[in-house]
């Protein structure tokens, strides 16, 4: 191979570099840039070092938002993963029932996120909403715009409705990939349904479940559109999650410095937690698919 051919490879790679640079690296560097400067106006800025990081890390509202974020993601994972596996186990294995249930499962995933929020606003309205008026009709006062607890319940319900199907689809694919002979062998051994689940299905699903847990954790930890539409972070601050708070600082108050520092910390938290999850899941129940 001559030199020219060696260099020609660069022409194929460079477009990717440029796209990645503009879409990821440059914005990230801009954020890093903002996070260490105080910006008064165009061309009027001052280097402040780690000032903003100190301020953000000491912000009690951020602590509160972070705590809420953990609670939210934790609840979402605790509900969606077992529920998703359960539904996948109950779904028909073949025939038209299997196709039908797959299509039904995929439906919530096809709806734009802000539309989901709108659907749930209407769905849970105490006066005309199907769910809201039904609950009120039973004599239980329900209004998620007034009660923080009810706002949380509504949000989690919405999140579970929206994203459990993803877990179902992944788990279903994992289950279908297990050769039939495993179940026959277990039957011959006299293993119970629980043993089959614990010793065959669960270990064999480890790969897809790792992906499901990572995706669900990251998505729920970064959630913005749905609570923004449904509750706007309220009532009070009760559903002000990290990204909502971040947008309030950056766009609402135009505090670009602290917002940039906040973004970087946020990014590192997600990165660190995802890595932790991945490590734990890699070592849990080794020997799966």
């Amino acid at each position: 191979m001559n030199k020219w051919e060696d260099n020609r490879a660069w022409f194929l790679v460079i477009p990717v570099f440029i796209i990645v640079a503009f879409s990821a690296i440059l914005p990230l560097m801009t954020v890093v840039n903002y996070s260490v400067q105080d910006i008064f106006g165009p061309g009027d800025r001052m280097f402040v070092g780690v000032e903003w990081f100190k301020e953000v890390l000491g912000d009690s509202r951020l602590h509160e938002a972070l705590l809420k974020q953990f609670l939210f993601s934790g609840l979402v994972l605790l509900i969606e993963i077992p529920l998703g596996i359960g539904i996948a186990l109950l779904m028909p294995k073949k025939g038209w029932g299997s196709s039908l249930s797959l299509v039904l499962m995929a439906l919530p995933l096809l709806i734009p996120w802000n539309v989901i929020g709108t659907i749930w606003i209407v769905f849970t309205r105490p006066d005309i909403g199907l769910l809201g008026s039904f609950i009120n009709g039973m004599g239980i006062p329900f209004d998620h715009t007034a009660s923080p607890i009810q706002a949380w319940i509504t949000l989690i319900l919405m999140e579970v409705w929206h994203w459990t199907p993803l877990v179902v689809l992944l788990a279903y694919a994992g289950l279908r990939a297990i050769p039939e002979a495993y179940f026959q062998a277990a039957k011959i051994d006299g293993a119970s349904a629980w043993a089959v689940f614990k010793y065959i299905q669960l270990p064999k699903m480890r790969g897809v479940l790792t992906i499901a847990i990572l995706l669900r954790f990251m998505d729920s930890f970064l959630i913005y559109a749905e609570p923004f539409v449904l509750t706007g972070g309220g009532p009070g601050n009760s559903t002000t999650f990290l990204s909502i708070y971040l947008v309030k600082i950056a766009v609402g108050q135009f505090d670009l410095g602290p917002a940039a520092a906040f973004s970087l910390i946020y990014f590192l938290i997600v990165l660190l937690l995802s890595w932790l999850f991945y490590q734990v899941l890699q070592n849990a129940g080794k020997g799966g698919a």
Partner: peptide, 11 residues
């Protein structure tokens, strides 16, 4: 029974 595929409990 022994199968074509190698069937053992993975964990």
């Amino acid at each position: 029974m022994v199968y074509q595929q190698f069937i053992n409990y993975p964990s």
